[in-house]
Amino acid sequence: MTSFLGRRIVSSAIPLVFVVLGVFCLARLTGNPVDLYLPLSATSQQRAEFSAAHGFDDSIPVQLWDYLTQAAQFDFGTSLRTGQSAATMVLDAFPVTLQLAGVTMLLAILGALLVGSLAAYRPNSLIDRIAGLLSMIAASIPDFWFAIMGVLVFGVGLDWLPTSGTLGGAEVWVLPIATLVIRPFGVLVQVVRGSMVGALSAPYVKVARSKGAGAGRVVFGHALRNAVTPVLTVAGDLTVGLVNGAVIVETIFGWPGIGKLMIDSILQRDFAVLQAAVLITAVTIFALNILVDVCHALIDPRVRQAVPA
């Protein structure tokens, strides 16, 4: 188990390193922040001082080294835009996105397990066809358009829900969550259905049935436990994709989350904040992948043994 975990940690850490390095270098290519933050009339001496104060005059390897040594001490620099510490800004924004993503994935997984199992229990039934339709819509509808339509119908037209913002009770959550949930839900329903169709035709299900177990116990007690591993893997991938959705949703609904923070800091060349935001996202995704692997190994002993040492 530990060697399995060690291997997975190493192989998941490679993308992490690439992403952090890649964003660091790419951000340096987006243009000199000095041009954006100093007035046109700034003298070359002022420009040199500004560059020196923020370390932009060093070569890129030197900047990278400074960044890595400071990051190792949890110092992520200060925002050029607000003067706040980048770590504070990112830590303020991160829980917002985490809540959004958490609620979305919880709803998507629970809903998909229920609908997918029902669809697999009677292939070609009404539920099965609805599930097929839903997953097709999930693959085809642009999320930003869905969000705007939601605002138009429920916010502007019917005036039931707020059009944007985070102030208020449960109603501010409805449209953002609904926008985020369609895609993971639609994909997961198909995954659950596919693996449940396989599990329900397995011999142990026949045995359970012949021993007189009820439909609910057969589906949720016997088949689902064996069918859940692919669902776990896909759910992990979908959570990564959820960051895409979060960028859109937070922009449209004005949520101060990590997606909006990243877009804003790219547009305003706020390197320190962008790097901190990317780092925390990458570390979260890394932790998530490890978590999925551990759950996988706990649920299915074959996973632990199948990988050659």
Partner: peptide
Amino acid sequence: MRTADVILSFPSLLIAVVVLYV
């Protein structure tokens, strides 16, 4: 496969945003 993992393990929209800005 490792290259594929690297590309896939990060939100595509975000990479696109950074690259298109460069």
